[in-house]
Amino acid sequence: AEIMKKTDFDKVASEYTKIGTISTTGEMSPLDAREDLIKKADEKGADVVVLTSGQTENKIHGTADIYKKK
């Protein structure tokens, strides 16, 4: 799966169907969080990951919607 910015995804959204939401939390780098989200998306058969939230304090927390091409 590839990560797309919401603004970029909005241009092609009609080509995809939302298949779920994924999240990651833990003591990790932003890059590790990104890789974890991609891994989870791949496991669910998603083609595209669109980040919906991200937070960093002591731990990273990120959520994303996942989509499959129609």
Rank of each mutant, 00 (worst) to 15 (best):
T52S: 11
S14Y: 11
D10P: 02
G62I: 15
G62T: 15
K6R: 12
K5P: 08
I19D: 02
M28I: 06
A33G: 05
T25E: 13
S23M: 12
T63H: 09
K18R: 09
E27Y: 14
T25F: 11
L31K: 14
D42I: 15
M4F: 05
G45T: 04
V12S: 03
K70R: 09
M4G: 01
L37C: 03
I19W: 04
K40P: 00
I22K: 01
A13F: 06
V48C: 05
T63I: 07
A1P: 10
E35S: 10
E57S: 10
S23T: 11
D8N: 04
E43L: 12
Y67I: 00
F9C: 02
Q55H: 11
I3Q: 01
I60K: 09
T25C: 15
K18V: 03
T63V: 08
K70G: 05
L51V: 07
R34E: 09
K70P: 02
M28G: 08
L37F: 05
T52K: 10
I60L: 11
Q55L: 13
R34W: 13
P30D: 14
V49P: 00
Q55F: 15
T7F: 09
M4V: 05
Y16A: 00
K40N: 03
D47L: 04
A64V: 07
A46Q: 00
A1W: 03
T25D: 15
D10Q: 10
K11D: 05
I3P: 03
A64R: 03
T21E: 09
Y16P: 00
Y16C: 01
E15M: 14
T56W: 14
E2S: 13
N58W: 10
Y67C: 02
Y67H: 03
S14A: 11
T7L: 10
I22M: 03
T63R: 08
K11V: 07
K6S: 09
Y16F: 07
T52Q: 11
K39F: 06
E15H: 11
E2Y: 14
A46H: 01
S14D: 10
Y16T: 00
G45A: 04
T63G: 04
D36Y: 14
E43M: 10
A1Y: 00
S29T: 09
T7H: 11
K39R: 14
T17S: 09
G26K: 11
L31V: 10
G54K: 08
N58I: 10
K68N: 03
G54F: 15
D65V: 06
A41E: 01
K59P: 13
G26P: 09
K39M: 07
N58R: 07
S29N: 08
D65K: 03
Y67M: 01
L31W: 11
K70I: 11
Y16D: 00
K59H: 12
S14L: 08
G54W: 15
K69T: 03
Q55I: 14
V49Y: 02
I22E: 01
N58A: 11
V50C: 03
F9G: 00
S29W: 10
V12Q: 03
L37T: 02
K18I: 07
T21V: 08
Y16I: 02
G20I: 01
K39W: 05
T56L: 12
S29V: 05
A41I: 01
K69P: 02
A46E: 02
A13D: 02
T52F: 08
K5Y: 14
K11S: 06
E57Y: 07
G45C: 11
L37M: 06
L31H: 12
I19Y: 02
G54I: 13
K5L: 14
K18N: 05
E2P: 03
P30C: 15
K6Y: 05
D8C: 09
I66E: 02
T24W: 14
K11I: 08
N58S: 12
L37S: 02
D8K: 04
G20A: 05
E2K: 15
A33R: 09
T52A: 09
K11A: 06
L37A: 02
V12I: 11
K40H: 05
E2G: 06
V48T: 02
A46N: 00
I22W: 04
L31R: 13
E57C: 12
T7Q: 11
D65C: 10
E2H: 14
D36P: 03
V12K: 04
T25K: 09
H61K: 12
P30E: 14
S23L: 07
K68F: 04
D8E: 10
K39V: 05
V12R: 05
A13G: 04
E43K: 08
I60C: 12
S14R: 09
P30Q: 09
T63W: 07
T63M: 09
I22A: 02
L37I: 05
S29D: 10
I19C: 06
F9H: 02
V50G: 02
H61S: 11
S23W: 13
D47F: 03
I38M: 08
K11Q: 07
M4S: 02
D32T: 09
R34L: 15
I66Q: 01
A1V: 13
Y16Q: 00
T56E: 12
E57N: 10
M28D: 06
Y67K: 00
K5E: 15
I60P: 09
T63P: 07
I66M: 06
P30Y: 14
I60T: 11
L31G: 10
V48H: 00
T56H: 12
R34F: 12
G54E: 15
M28E: 06
A13N: 05
G26Q: 10
T7E: 15
L51H: 03
A46Y: 02
K5M: 14
S29R: 06
K5G: 09
L51Q: 03
K39G: 05
K11Y: 05
Y67E: 01
A41L: 02
I66T: 02
E35H: 13
P30A: 13
K68G: 02
M28N: 07
T7S: 14
L37D: 00
A64M: 06
E35T: 12
A64G: 04
H61D: 10
V12F: 05
I3R: 02
V48Q: 01
D32G: 08
Y16N: 00
I3K: 01
T21S: 11
G54Q: 10
T25V: 11
